[in-house]
Computed example of a mutant assay.
Amino acid sequence: MTERQTYHLAELNVGRLVAPTDDPRVAEFMENLDRINGLGKRMPGFVWMMEGSGEPGTGNTENSIGDDPQFVANLTVWEDAAALEKFVWGTVHKQFYDKRHDWFDILSDQHFVMWWVPVGHRPTLDEAMKRLEHLREHGPDETAFGWAQLDQAGMWRDKRCTHVAAE
Score class of each variant (00 low, 15 high):
R136D: 10
Y97F: 14
E137W: 00
P123I: 06
S64E: 10
V117T: 08
D126W: 03
F71W: 15
N60R: 14
K94N: 08
K86Y: 12
V77R: 00
V77H: 06
Q110N: 13
K86M: 13
E85D: 00
H138C: 12
P118D: 10
H101K: 11
A83L: 07
Q110S: 12
D105P: 05
W116R: 15
F145R: 01
P118H: 09
V119C: 12
M129S: 05
W78Q: 03
P140C: 11
P123R: 02
A73E: 05
W89G: 07
A81R: 05
Q95Y: 13
M129K: 12
N60Y: 13
P123W: 10
D80T: 03
E133K: 03
W103I: 08
E133T: 04
Q95E: 15
M114C: 07
R131V: 01
L125F: 12
H134P: 11
H93P: 00
G146L: 08
K94T: 06
V88W: 01
L107R: 14
L125T: 06
D141A: 07
L107S: 07
Y97D: 07
G52V: 09
E62A: 15
R122G: 05
V92D: 13
D67G: 14
A81E: 11
E137T: 10
A82D: 13
N60H: 15
P69V: 12
L132I: 02
L132D: 04
K99A: 14
W78K: 00
P69M: 08
H134E: 03
W115G: 04
G59Q: 03
A81K: 01
V92H: 11
W89Q: 03
A81H: 06
D68A: 03
P140Y: 08
D102M: 14
G146W: 04
H111G: 02
M114N: 00
F87P: 00
K130Q: 15
T91I: 06
G57P: 10
R136M: 04
A82H: 13
D68G: 14
L135C: 09
V117N: 06
T143P: 01
E142A: 15
A81L: 05
P118N: 12
R100M: 09
L125I: 14
A82R: 12
G54V: 05
I106C: 15
F87C: 01
H121I: 07
K99L: 12
A73W: 04
I106F: 15
D102K: 13
W103V: 05
V77M: 02
H111P: 01
P56H: 10
M114S: 00
N63H: 12
Y97V: 09
E85Q: 06
L75T: 06
R122D: 08
D102F: 14
E55I: 11
G66E: 10
A82F: 11
V117C: 06
D109P: 01
F104N: 03
W103R: 01
G139N: 03
W116K: 15
G139T: 02
L132T: 05
A73Q: 04
E79W: 07
G90T: 03
N63G: 09
G54W: 03
Q110W: 08
L75Q: 00
G59R: 04
D80R: 01
E133D: 15
V88H: 03
F96A: 09
S108G: 14
S53P: 12
W103G: 09
I65W: 06
